[in-house]
Write a protein that binds this DNA or RNA. Sequence first.
DNA 1: TCTTTAGTACAAGATGTATTGTACTATCTC
DNA 2: GAGATAGTACAATACATCTTGTACTAAAGA
Lengths: 111, 111
Amino acid sequence: MPQETSATDTAPRELWYPEREDITIYGILAALSDPTRLEIVRALAQHEERCPFDFLDITSKQNLTHHFKVLREAGLIKSRYEGRKKFVWLRRDPIDEMFPGLLDGILGAVK
Amino acid sequence: MPQETSATDTAPRELWYPEREDITIYGILAALSDPTRLEIVRALAQHEERCPFDFLDITSKQNLTHHFKVLREAGLIKSRYEGRKKFVWLRRDPIDEMFPGLLDGILGAVK
DNA sequence: TCTTTAGTACAAGATGTATTGTACTATCTC
DNA sequence: GAGATAGTACAATACATCTTGTACTAAAGA
């Protein structure tokens, strides 16, 4: 199981991301098999960056945090903090390199 | 939940399959997010028809039965019985029509 | 400093899934 | 019919996942 950065770390709110070679097609498919997460990823594919709570119309705060964590641990997204806002974007490069055509196939399959 | 044909039915060993419109991209992605099932589907994509127990090197009998049931209920496969053997094949047509590029994207992503 | 907003942590409950063991049916061959 | 083979059914366990409630931190603005 991936370890979050502990409270003793210097940098606050730093998140763990899987290395390129730890991203699996199984993790990606599982992450995208949830309607909420597929909708989020579809939005990220169009908007460059989004804030997690732009999606509060879909589900609750805590649940969004959960789903963004799943997407992050699957290697699908990265994020940065700016003040109290968080900006999230798709990690297209490693995924398109390791699994060419996968993301396009999934995102293109639904109009 | 899908109902299997009961023991009182005339035709023996008939299985339930989802209608075209009941196939979802979420179900497909979830079904293919398992290593065993993705390997099975990759083999089916190359071999036209296969018997479930051609995959006994991967996992147990009962587990294969389980995984083939998941694939069937997701709408990914169809099967027929011939004597005591079962032959399974990919349901490419409805999937390629409803989700064009999806299966190719997933199966093409892994060499 | 106080309040508000963005976001996280954690626990809990409900549900789903993967796997195995045991027992069973169905078909073929002898 | 007897035995072997292909396959299923069901229960049980272990584990993962989704969702919500409660409580918390971190930053912005007044």
